[in-house]
Simulated scan of single mutants.
Amino acid sequence: MAVQATIGTMTRSQTQRRRRIVQTAAALAVRGGVEAMQMRSVAERAGVALGTLYRYFPSKMDLVVAVVTEELDLLEGGIVRRPPTSEAAAGRAVDVLLRATRGLMREPELADALVRSLIMAEVEIELDVRITDLVWRVATGHLQIREADGEGTRAVDVDREGTDYVLVGSLTSVWIFELVEVLKGRRDIDEVERRLHVAAERLLASF
């Protein structure tokens, strides 16, 4: 069984190789969707052996998750550079979730694969945790960041045991459901925005 390389234990060259693989997979997905992200094709285009690819990413879904995680890193960087300006916590939270929705929907097939992985638990993934952490930090005014081994930013000072975090987590669950509805063609972004505002105003009323 392949053992996935852990970012924290990789050398600089390994980190660069991993990033090249992820960028190659993303480029293939842009042109042909998730189906185009065949492991052999990714390996060939990234200039690595197929066995090497599997050491970094034991399955195709692990690779999909890595591509979307990079999108989340970009989202978080954008939030830090241009934080939501609403005076209300609910408005700031919805701003983050809408930016995440638009980012994911640029590649709906990737978003669909990711949501399926959340529902079916095909791989260990922390999309909901990443989003919840970010929304909590924005909603509560704790938008501190730190660099993490050159792999983007990670949240700090997140109180995952607190009531506020639980409420934000409930809002994230609503968002994931709404994302599923968008992917199924049963919602448009305007309707999602309206519904998220209603949920956020109720759930975060005490913030």
Rank of each mutant, 00 (worst) to 15 (best):
V65T: 08
V115E: 06
Y56Q: 02
G51L: 02
G91P: 09
R99V: 15
A36S: 09
S41V: 15
M120E: 10
E70Y: 02
M39R: 03
G33T: 14
E44T: 03
V48K: 05
L50S: 05
A89E: 09
E76F: 10
V96Q: 01
R116A: 04
R20A: 04
R17M: 05
S117Q: 08
A25N: 04
A113M: 07
G91Y: 13
V34Q: 04
A36M: 08
A49R: 14
R99K: 10
L28E: 07
L50P: 09
G32L: 14
A36T: 09
G77S: 14
F57W: 06
E109K: 01
V65Y: 04
I119N: 01
V34D: 09
R102H: 06
L74S: 10
G33V: 14
R17F: 00
R92E: 09
Y54H: 14
I79Q: 01
S117I: 07
V22Y: 03
V34A: 09
A29T: 13
K60I: 12
L104T: 10
R45M: 07
L98G: 00
R45S: 07
L50Y: 09
S86E: 11
G78W: 07
L72C: 12
A25G: 06
L114M: 11
V96D: 03
R82Q: 12
Q38K: 06
A113S: 14
E87M: 05
R81W: 07
R18Y: 06
R99C: 07
L118R: 02
V42L: 04
